[in-house]
Structure formats: C-alpha cells, structure tokens
Amino acid sequence: MRVTDLTLGLLTLLGGIAIYISALGFKAIPGQAYGAGTMPRAIALVTVLTGIFLIFKAALAGERVPGLVLADWTRQRGPMARAASVLVLIVVYIMISPIVGFLPTAFVVMVLAMLVLRVRLLIAAPVALVAAIAIQQSFGKLLLVPLPRSSFLTFLW
C-alpha cells in the first residue's frame, strides 16, 4: 500500500493546509500575540513546504499523475483478512474486557489470534491460558494494574 512521491507530496500539502485552517480558531493568550494557535500554525507551515518540495521532486522525476503502488499481498484475500483480524481483535478486547473481565477476554483473543496464524487449537488453548493467567498475576497482583475484572468471576481474583 505504497503511495508514490507525488501522492505523498499532495497528501502532505493537504494535511498542512488542513492543520492551518483548523488552527485559525485557536485563541492567543489574552494580551499576547502567541498562544494555542502558534504551534499548530508553525507545524502547518513547514508541512506545506515539505509537501511542495516532494511535489517538485516528483515532477522533476517525471511523475505526472498521483498513484498508488499496491504490494502483492494486498491483492490476495488471505493476507488482507489477517491484517484486518489484528485490528478486529484489538477492538474486541477493548469492547468485551470491561464486561466479562480480563482473563476470559485475553484467553479468547489470544486463541483466536493463534488460530488465524494456523496454530493448532490443542497448542493454542493451553498456551493462551497460561499466558493469560501469567499476565493477570504479574500485572494485576504484583504491579497493581487494575485490569478489568468481571463481576461474576471473582473467585479468580
């Protein structure tokens, strides 16, 4: 999923302009010329310059139309699905762990992730269980991190 220099330049330029416009609403510190808008505006300015530089460079190299170079894996369904599965699993953890608690969620997420990578369930399940308990004990007990706890599996704590 690689963009060409010209595309990158255009994206950078647009990003810079967007930051500048969004920063117009930030007020200065009362009685001063500087404030919340100073930094975003400075960032925007240099971003715009970098974008223009990249566009020039691309144009000099003969690039005329913005493009996107797709790596081989993006055309296959498997790798795309696996990449997406990482993101889905993170969201699943965020959504479910506060409800059912850390231990079951972590176990399920790790088992599913291993299944995606074609680890056999017979190996995945015990490894995930041991890892989940180890993390729960070390983070939750020793380091006092308030991992999400379920309201019903209290006997595990």
């Binding site: 699943v92 479910i96 409800i99 059912v100 079951p104 399920v108 599913l112 309201s151 019903f152 599996l153």
Partner: peptide
C-alpha cells in the same frame, strides 16, 4: 465463540 461467551457472561452477571 465470543458471542457464546458474552451471552453466558451476561447471564452469570
């Protein structure tokens, strides 16, 4: 799998 876990979790809670 997760849906089942969720459902039983709710019930237990």
């Amino acid at each position: 799998f997760p849906t089942t876990v969720m459902a039983s979790a709710m019930a237990l809670a």
